[in-house]
Design a protein around this nucleic acid. Structure first.
Lengths: 218, 218
DNA sequence: GAATTCTGATTGAACTGTCAATCAAAATGA
DNA sequence: TCATTTTGATTGACAGTTCAATCAGAATTC
């Protein structure tokens, strides 16, 4: 894993560009969070995971706090960009948009055991650290208002009558709960099973447009 | 807060019974987890919150690890006992049982900001600590199989045809997701609003028995 | 084009603070 | 008196931070 990240034809692999090295250290931080949890994530362990020296982490990120908050911002932005581009790629009709939105949360690039575990580590600490909340709450609010608007369009354009705010909240918390399941179950089920659970839920609210397999008539 | 916990008429407030002092320290641990998060929860802070000395914590719980795992067991058992007694107190018919079960998760005794925050702290760390998982996964499996059996009874006894396992999972992850919302939203909604969201969801699956206000025809 | 200089990435050791754990002595209650 | 609880100073380990020295590659000079 970390070997593959290193340049291919390279004995003297020293001196990666600033950005590449920082990305490597962020990856190592995610891996360490997933393996050790937040409380036992040390600078030394991150450096060891990256195959680099201790002091280098402090050269690129001045403090541990900055390393961790940068990692959180990285995860948070990657996540937001993922569902945003999924919405752009999907047809503009509300059911298609909702299907793309829900599916994006279980994209193989986003929904990996390692990243889910790192998210879980942050959730526990973020409540008590204003610095962490700042960036994430903005993304979270954006996410929430997006799904609320889509549920409202389902009512306006396709004749459903449910409370859009509440329906959006159900879809959102189902996804959150499934993420927590995926990261903590002793006998975990797979991404596709989680997604199937979301479809069941969408079908319960929008029976003319969703079924157990997702969007109907696709 | 910590002053109020101390005995009222008390110069000589020493020598509480063993159990009472341990309970006091567990309360202080929950409060500290909620206030500081797991990583910044220290023995000293727990002692200060309880208004007691540093060394005393090590006298009652030999190690920090034991203090924390005892606290987790306390929370976990209190939670299980809460929904178990709610089931026992409710009528035996499946809809009543499900209503009681879902409502129990938002009981004011269980669903306090402080306890939710402490749960969140543990969730992040529990993934990487087998000792934490042991006790909780047993309770979790029990919880899951209970709601699955109830959903199966809704099919058998009241003519619904949904996949009981999947429906149970939806109800479970909705609750989990709402808990996460309650503990992390910057503009949190209240317990009753969370419960209303659960009812919406139950109504979507069992429309003849549940409505936005909960159990129908009660 | 080779030698030299310069830049800044990288290392590892030393420093500093913090925390869990220990323990001897004091306080308390029976 | 005796056992138990409580205290607070002490200890040792460990983690984050700092920093001076090193080194590879780029730029510059001749």
């Amino acid at each position: 894993m970390s070997e593959a990240e290193q340049e291919s034809r390279s004995e003297g692999r020293r001196k990666l560009s600033r950005g590449a090295r920082q990305a490597q250290l962020i990856e190592a931080t995610i891996a360490t969070l997933a393996k050790q949890g937040y409380a036992r994530t040390t600078m030394g362990e991150v450096a060891r995971t990256a195959g680099l020296s201790h002091g280098l982490v402090n050269f690129h990120f001045e403090t541990k706090e900055k390393l961790l908050s940068t990692t959180l911002v990285y995860l948070s932005d990657e996540y937001r960009e993922s569902w945003q581009s999924a919405l752009e790629a999907a047809p503009p009709d509300a059911p298609d948009q909702i299907a793309a939105f829900l599916r994006a949360d279980f994209d193989p690039k986003i929904c990996t055991p390692e990243k889910l575990s790192a998210w879980g580590s942050f959730w526990g600490e973020a409540q008590t650290r204003p610095m962490y909340q700042e960036h994430c709450s903005a993304n979270d609010l954006y996410y929430t208002s997006t799904i609320e608007a889509l549920c409202q369009r389902m009512n306006d354009e396709h004749g459903y009558t449910s409370d859009a705010i509440l329906t959006a909240r159900v879809l959102r918390v189902v996804t959150e709960g499934l993420w927590r399941d995926l990261m903590s179950m002793t006998e975990p089920y797979e991404r596709d099973e989680a997604l199937a659970t979301v479809w069941i839920c969408a079908a319960a609210f929008y029976p003319r447009h969703f079924g157990p397999q997702g969007l109907l008539g696709a």
